[in-house]
């Protein structure tokens, strides 16, 4: 059978979202950042809200988000994305505002801004990429690095004197201002499909004006972890997910209690 019988516009089932342009992502091969930006683009396109979205980029691997997305984007200083998003949303309450932040940005230098935006219940979508390491600066320890994890600044493994990995989603779920808190992953097709639903929910929630929606993505950093993309994803399953379990943590303003 001629393959060209299949490759026809009417048979199309998946194509990169038009909200992404054709520039090549600056991410390393296999990086979860790319999948997350793809999902943001898909959700925005499917909701048909391109003209109503203002994104907030941060400092870290996703700093160039405005290069790849055909959206209006404001680029924040390191750690300040939640404050910048607050400023935008407060004066433009009818727009959809999201921040895209890594673990250094959201859970270290910007902890104060992140927690207070959550606590005020800013009606925004905070997207948090947790790969347990500082990717852009070359693989240094993050607040989310696991116990024993080897990084450029913990070459013999993270020990207790270096502090403990922080579960930001669980922290912000405790705050009254958060309406939806979920932890997702994007390294298998099934997880990506599930994560997209969660992200869509987090954007839809902005219509309700009931508080902040927080979506954590536990992703790989294969360069930082010094593993191939496939091995990094296996390591993620074996080490990251037991400490950062996936699923909804808070829905409709109520913490999800898991029956054992």
């Amino acid at each position: 059978m001629d393959i060209n019988e299949i490759i026809k516009e009417e048979n199309l089932v998946y194509r990169k979202s038009a909200v992404l342009n054709d520039k090549v992502f600056n991410f390393c091969p296999g990086c979860g950042h790319g999948v997350v930006q793809k999902l943001i683009a898909e959700v925005v396109e499917e909701m048909n809200i391109e003209s109503e979205v203002i994104g907030v980029g941060s400092v870290g691997c996703s700093v160039l988000v405005y290069e790849f997305m055909e959206l209006d984007v404001v680029s924040a200083a390191h750690g300040r994305a939640a404050a910048v998003a607050t400023g935008i949303k407060r004066v433009m309450p009818d727009k959809y505002v999201f921040s895209l932040q890594g673990d250094g940005d959201l859970a270290a230098i910007g902890t104060s801004e992140s927690i207070h935006a959550c606590n005020r219940g800013e009606n925004i979508t905070m997207i948090f990429i947790n790969n347990g390491i500082y990717g852009m600066t070359g693989g240094q320890m993050a607040p989310t690095s696991l116990h024993g994890m080897k990084t450029a600044t913990s070459p013999y493994g993270r020990n207790e004197a270096m502090g403990h990995p922080i579960r930001m989603s669980d922290v912000v779920a405790q705050l009254e201002g958060t309406y939806y808190v979920t932890r997702q992953a994007v390294h298998t097709p099934a997880m990506v499909r599930k994560a997209k639903k969660a992200l869509r929910q987090a954007f839809e929630n902005q219509k309700l004006n009931k508080g902040l929606s927080f979506v954590e993505f536990v992703t790989n950093c294969n360069s930082g972890w010094k593993l191939s993309p496939i091995k990094a994803n296996q390591w993620l399953d074996q080490h990251m997910l037991p400490f950062y379990p996936l699923g909804d943590i808070k829905t409709e303003g109520v913490i999800v209690t898991k029956d054992k």
């Binding site: 490759i7 048979n11 089932v13 998946y14 194509r15 990169k16 992404l20 992502f25 950042h33 990506v192």
Partner: peptide, 22 residues
């Protein structure tokens, strides 16, 4: 089989998928 798994998981959005029933 045009399941789109490859395209969905691709971090760079480089795969376009087509599917047809014969």
């Amino acid at each position: 089989i045009g399941c789109t798994n490859c395209a969905v998981v691709c971090p760079d959005g480089v795969i376009t998928v087509y599917k047809k029933k014969f």
